[in-house]
Amino acid sequence: MSRTPQQIFESYIYAGTITRNADALAESFTEDGVFEAPLMPADAAFPRRLVGREEIRNAMAAYYEQPVKDGRTPNLEKSGYVLHTTSSPDVFIAEIDTVFDGDGEDTAVSLVQIFRIRDGKIARLRDYFAPELMS
């Protein structure tokens, strides 16, 4: 049975943002999956483009080893998202507002992700967010 966009999105967010589990994140992609953050500068710590499940696994494991900026954690009660389906059953868009708890002040991050799905896994993900939020 094929997974719904909501199931795919929620498992991706749990693997990446919530648990920072590079193995689980990589497994949400097809073997030849592509992860892109097109707005990231080439020299940023957060990867700009990764091709293939193993490259995603290795690069994200290295990224997750770095300390979290300002010790912040996502506040799921304050955060939210809307999924938008498209005319293609293999494409959906996530509009996300994440609120991070930090030292004394919350930080809000708004972003858009475009998912292309194949066989219930992510074949291509484009993640659009302000690069300075990840440095």
Rank of each mutant, 00 (worst) to 15 (best):
A44K: 09
D97N: 15
E54L: 07
G80T: 07
R126I: 02
K69A: 10
I13G: 04
I18S: 11
L25S: 03
D70Q: 10
S110H: 14
F100E: 02
D90N: 13
D101I: 07
A22S: 13
E95A: 11
E77F: 07
A15L: 10
I117N: 01
T19R: 13
D97P: 06
D97E: 13
A42D: 15
A108V: 14
E10R: 00
M134Y: 12
E65L: 14
S135F: 12
Y14G: 15
A123Q: 09
G102M: 01
G71C: 09
A94I: 05
A59K: 11
A61D: 09
F129H: 15
F100W: 09
E31I: 10
T98F: 11
P74A: 05
F9M: 02
Q113M: 08
E65P: 07
I13A: 12
L125H: 03
Y63Q: 11
D101G: 01
I117M: 01
H84N: 13
F29Y: 08
Q6C: 01
P67T: 04
A123S: 13
A59E: 12
E36W: 02
T30E: 04
V109S: 02
F115C: 00
P131F: 03
A15I: 06
P41L: 04
V91Q: 11
R118H: 04
E55G: 08
I18T: 14
T98M: 09
Y63S: 10
L39Y: 12
S135M: 13
E27F: 10
E55S: 11
Q113D: 11
G52Q: 03
V68F: 07
V34Q: 05
F92G: 02
S28Q: 15
A42V: 13
E95H: 14
A22I: 09
L25Y: 05
D101V: 05
G104Q: 05
L133S: 08
A15Y: 08
Q113I: 03
R72D: 10
